[in-house]
């Protein structure tokens, strides 16, 4: 019997909006990632420092309650306890380490298996473009990395804002803004690195090593450039340093004196992102369906 005679009909029901459709991809990956033991361990570990910082925020806002400080309080201690750009810079620096480890574990599984098993045509045979594929993969990392960066960062900031006076918030509004911008840039960078490594080697395991190597080896290489050539610009090659310089500028913290500044760092970061994106797109190109 012909198919149409059996009352076959095209699906006419409601469809999800085309703008959010790519979210279908990360939706299935998140629960899987959160089921991994190592990921959970890392997430838990990454909570300690924000909690410590939250405790610090609490103490600094209740400094008067501390008996040793008495009523007037010591100016030096007060200064040490103040919540300023430096506080957030240190906070971000610690959390960023967890982000790298998480990306090294979660990132490689995102593209490498698709390439190794020739699954990309399956994606591109559906109404999904290369960009939205990358976007979807990036969403996965964005979600998981926010858990250790943006979310605890905002938590600490909001806690401070609610405990401190409105005057503090007005004067330090830029701290929250800088932190969010800084973390966003960082997340984009880390996830792009992880995705590119994943697409570059096609092997999940090796991709993880590559992500680690990327950070460690570049950091080491930048240091030996500085030492052997007796220069300072080597630091620019270290993405960890470069992003820190940008953060310091965003948070209004004085950076180290004789090291490359924020603008140079930012330019180098942008160049690096562009290069990574180019590699990523090239690796994904040959199988894309022209639409």
């Amino acid at each position: 019997m012909a198919v149409f005679k059996r009352g076959y009909e095209r699906y006419n029901g409601p469809l999800t909006g085309s703008a959010t459709r790519f979210l279908a991809v990360p939706r299935f990956v998140w629960p899987k990632l959160l089921g991994q033991r190592f990921v959970v361990i890392l997430l838990v570990l990454s909570l300690f420092w924000p909690l410590l910082c939250a405790g610090f925020v609490y103490v600094s806002n209740h400094a008067d309650l501390l008996p040793s400080l008495g009523s007037g309080g010591d100016d030096g201690i007060r200064k040490m306890l103040s919540i300023d750009g430096k506080f957030f810079a240190i906070f971000m620096n610690v959390q960023s380490t967890f982000a790298i480890l998480l990306a090294a574990i979660a990132g490689p599984g995102l593209i490498a298996p698709d390439l190794a098993n020739n699954a990309l045509p399956l994606y591109f045979a559906r109404p999904l473009s290369r960009w939205s594929y990358i976007g979807a993969r990036m969403m996965v990392l964005f979600g998981i990395l926010s858990l250790v960066t943006l979310v605890p960062g905002l938590f600490v900031f909001i806690m401070q804002a609610s405990l401190a006076s409105t005057a503090w918030l007005q004067a330090n509004w830029f701290l929250g803004q800088g932190m969010v911008l800084g973390f966003l840039l960082y997340i984009v960078m880390v996830s792009l690195i992880a995705l590119t490594c994943s697409a570059y080697v096609k092997w999940r395991v090796v991709a993880g090593a590559l992500v680690l190597a990327f950070f460690f080896v570049l950091a080491g290489a930048s240091q030996i450039i500085n030492q052997v050539l007796r220069v300072e610009w080597g630091s620019l090659l270290n993405p960890g340093y470069a992003i820190y310089a940008v953060w310091c500028a965003l948070l209004g913290v004085e950076a180290a004196e004789d090291a490359p500044g924020a603008w140079e760092s930012f330019t180098v970061l942008l160049l690096m992102l562009a290069a990574l994106l180019a590699v990523l797109l090239r690796k994904l190109r040959p199988v894309e369906v022209v639409s």
Partner: peptide, 15 residues
């Protein structure tokens, strides 16, 4: 000596 120990042995040979 520093380059050899901190970069070469620890990172290059390792990776």
């Amino acid at each position: 000596a520093g380059v050899f120990q901190f970069f070469y042995l620890r990172l290059a040979v390792f990776f």
